[in-house]
Design a protein around this nucleic acid. Structure first.
Lengths: 243, 243
DNA sequence: GCAAAAGTGTTCACATTACACCCATGG
DNA sequence: CCATGGGTGTAATGTGAACACTTTTGC
């Protein structure tokens, strides 16, 4: 913000009533990624605006007058997935003039990663469905653009921050984890190199359990070491360059 | 966004008139970095709100009703520096409830890099000044938080994208460039490794000129190879993982 | 000739890549 | 016994970090 109108008339050369500025609505849109059947999926809802009848859209809502952006995005996440202990990352803000038929709506995009199996029963609203990312070609509003950017952001982040564990169950095999990485990155990975890389992070805890019900030799099951991850994060931030 | 109120009453459990949502203002705030005297600087303006009298703030303005976010941010940049051929990067959006005394103002933060010498004469508004980044301890509103985040973003970006050349003159020596990197990263760099690294990018053009008026052996002067950089960008984006 | 910075290569540690075989399980 | 994936190591290559001496110029 905002050294706006009063004492600096040179900035706003065309005089506009200050009240004309306060006619925007803010929304949040959440790109909620899930992982199932070795495919990345996104939670979408049937759009209820006649302009986009039959289209799907991201999960979003207007930000309430008494609500800050984070509160709103976590509210949407909670309302749609029942989950409230997840990480939401702000990605970008979209403010095109005609992106919403109801008026000027500026939207802030967030993404989150959820375990499909953990909350699928809470999807009470049957207009909400998981869609394979690769099948999504069109969405309402500018939501396809938002989705693409959030996916790109996810691809970037996975290299630095192994937060993708949220997409898997509490316990998982290295195969599941590798398939997840492959789905996100859109590439095949070398099994031995992948396991070495993961193992050097030291972020996996061997549960001493193995898979069952797999039609092949069962793999070991691991848990994510959240504590150790938190400590690593703190160390990393503590040793940042000055500033 | 925005599957807002009408047909999905379960989302908004407390009924709020749709018009209550359209009472927000949007602003852009630009963190304009410059480089001079081997120090990173930021362009600040004296805040003209009585609530923050005497404080400095970032350069920002309300987004006009008929203006999208990019247009607004480039307008602010142009108005304050006279420059219109620069790169502006959106960093994050800040929407805290009480961040602005005039009402709910959600601001989108951008940063840009400008050459101080190239535009200093155009700073007609004498309430606008360059401030060494390291001297800035307080700003109006939440602008210190915004500044810190933009600086962090700049530090991240410099590793991947050598856009910082905008901070230097058309021709520059490797010493100037290294000092710039050191100022941004807040660290000392090894001269030989730095020159090797820069030289392998192939993005410098030897102008066959040398410095003058330096009290030591003059260094070669280089130009940034924008064309080659653009091509590298395109190649990099073309070979992205599928999506 | 002195101060100050330009210019220049090698070595080492570490990370990334490519690559192949035997093992355990379910069917 | 067959199919499927589990589990494992090594060599080659590339990348980042550390490090010292000679050269050129202004003063």
């Amino acid at each position: 913000m905002t050294n706006s109108a009063p004492k600096r008339p040179n900035i706003n050369t065309t005089p506009i009533d200050i009240q004309d500025y306060f006619k925007v609505a803010i929304s949040v849109d959440c790109v909620i990624f899930g992982f199932d059947d070795n495919a990345l999926k996104v939670l979408l809802i049937k759009c209820n605006l006649k302009e986009y009848e039959g289209s799907w859209s991201l999960l979003g809502d207007l930000v309430r007058p008494d609500e800050d952006l984070e509160t709103a995005s976590y509210r949407v996440l909670k309302e749609r997935t029942g989950l409230d202990d997840l990480y939401l990352e702000q990605v970008q803000t979209f403010g095109g003039l005609n992106r919403h038929p109801a008026g000027r709506v500026v939207t802030i995009a967030y993404y989150s990663l959820v375990n499909i199996k953990h909350h699928q029963l809470k999807l009470s609203d049957n207009e909400v469905h998981w869609h394979p990312l690769n099948d999504i070609t069109r969405l309402a509003f500018d939501h396809k653009k938002i989705l693409d950017l959030c996916y790109l952001q996810l691809q970037k982040n996975i290299q630095e921050k192994p937060l993708v564990f949220n997409l898997l169950g509490n316990k998982f095999s290295l195969r599941e984890l590798q398939h997840l990485y492959e789905a996100i990155l859109g590439t095949k990975l070398d099994r031995r190199n992948f396991r070495k890389k993961i193992s050097t992070t030291g972020l996996l805890i061997d549960t001493n359990e193995i898979e069952s019900d797999v039609p092949h030799r069962p793999g070991k099951l691991y848990k994510f070491n959240y504590q150790k991850y938190q400590k690593q994060l703190q160390r990393a931030n503590g040793s940042k360059p000055q500033g």
